[in-house]
Amino acid sequence: MRHALLSIRDRLDRMGVVLSALCAVHCVLGIVFVSVLGLGGRFLLDPRIHQIGLALAVLVGLVSLGFGVLRHGRLGPLAIGAIGLGLMASAILSGHGLAETVLTVAGVALVATAHIRNLHRAA
């Protein structure tokens, strides 16, 4: 049973890294497509995409990073992830534009770093 839980946590950490990367790509490409090409503004800038993405990031982050603390006893990955999630939430509140992009990319970079550190700490 313990091995199964560790496997699930590892998968969630890996999913967190992938979701972080997808979020950063969406953010950067969204700015490029809308600003430069004038394409996809209605879909790419839909607030629901950002709200759902943040909800997924919070869910995956709390479960995997929380289990990580229980497993290895280190709060660092959880703290880094929390700061990243805070930046991502700030991005949603800032409205569309450069500030949103910078906050989102910084936030997802921290969340991905937290998941990677969580994986390494548990090894």
Rank of each mutant, 00 (worst) to 15 (best):
H3Q: 13
H3V: 15
L5D: 09
R9M: 12
R9N: 11
R9H: 11
R9K: 12
R11Q: 11
R11S: 09
D13M: 14
D13V: 02
G16N: 03
V18F: 09
V18I: 13
A21H: 04
V25F: 14
C27Q: 14
C27W: 04
I31A: 15
V32K: 03
S35W: 11
V36Y: 14
L37N: 03
L37A: 11
G41W: 01
R42N: 11
R42M: 09
F43D: 15
L44A: 09
D46Q: 11
I49C: 09
H50T: 02
Q51I: 04
A55H: 01
L62W: 04
L62S: 05
F67E: 09
R71G: 03
R71E: 13
H72R: 06
H72L: 01
A82P: 09
A82F: 08
A82S: 15
L85G: 09
L87Y: 04
M88D: 02
I92W: 00
S94I: 00
G95R: 07
G97H: 08
G97C: 06
L98Q: 10
L98E: 08
E100W: 07
E100V: 00
T104N: 07
V111W: 03
A112P: 00
A114L: 01
I116Y: 09
I116M: 15
R117V: 10
N118Y: 05
N118W: 03
L119M: 09
H120I: 10
H120T: 15
A122C: 08
